[in-house]
Computed example of a mutant assay.
Amino acid sequence: MDLEKQPHPPQAPARQPQAPAIRASDADRDRIADILREALAEGRLTAEEHSERIDSVYRAKTLGELEPLVEDLPAPGAGPQRDPAPAAFASADPNLPVTAESLVAVFSSSTRKGRWRIGGRTKAFSLFGNIEIDLTEALFEQRLTVIDATSIFGNVEVTVPENISLRGNGTGIFGNFEVETLESENPEAPVVVVNGYSVFGNIEAKPKRGKLVTDLHKHLRKYLG
């Protein structure tokens, strides 16, 4: 008598090798931050939700960590069109200079202070030098401002007004990275994020007591009647 042929159990599919995680660039983080900023302006995110996600953006190391932060949000420009509202903090004088994109101090010092318009991203590099970035009188034309600081046997100091939000993410190797976190009560206030990497050096960011960003639109309305 012929033996019945027993069916062979199905073989498990071969496990595909997992693709390596792709490291996120500054441009990738800026793209995600732009989507979050637009979502906040459209009311899709609360100020608290926006704050939490922005913190995650600048802590993310890979693209896989960034994409979940905006998977429930539309792409920029996909929402209903509307007239842009005036920024809560903006320059009253278009002739004031915009900050340089980078500050470098090699066995020297570099200072940026006074009345000036700061751009969305500023890079600071100190090698056996000292860099001072004073934003207490700066004019913010965007809500999010990022400062990327690197200090090697050097010093980078950032001071901000008391009524903005200040956040940081960095590392000190035989050195110091210290950001005095600050959260503004005004959801429209500028946000300054300091990213830093210090080797035998110092990176420090803190508010300057008594210094406040002024709502320039209010003063313009009063001046123009």
Rank of each mutant, 00 (worst) to 15 (best):
F200P: 01
F177E: 01
N186P: 00
V213R: 10
G168K: 02
P190W: 08
H217A: 15
G175R: 02
K208M: 14
E180W: 02
G175K: 05
G196P: 09
V213A: 13
F174C: 08
E178C: 08
F174P: 00
S184D: 12
R209Y: 08
A189N: 02
N186M: 04
N176H: 15
P207R: 08
E185S: 14
G201W: 02
N195Y: 00
H217Y: 15
L220H: 03
E204S: 12
N186D: 15
V179L: 08
L212A: 03
P187D: 03
R221Q: 13
N176L: 14
P207M: 10
S184W: 13
S184G: 01
V192M: 04
T171W: 00
P187R: 03
R167Q: 04
G170W: 06
K211Q: 11
N202W: 04
K206T: 02
V192F: 04
E178G: 10
V199E: 01
E183Y: 08
G210V: 07
N195R: 06
I203V: 05
V179C: 11
F200Q: 03
S198H: 01
T171E: 01
S198F: 03
D215C: 06
E185G: 10
V192Y: 05
D215E: 08
I203E: 03
G168S: 01
V191A: 04
Y197C: 00
N186I: 11
R209A: 10
N186H: 07
N176S: 11
P187W: 08
R167H: 06
V213Y: 05
K208V: 09
G201D: 12
R167P: 01
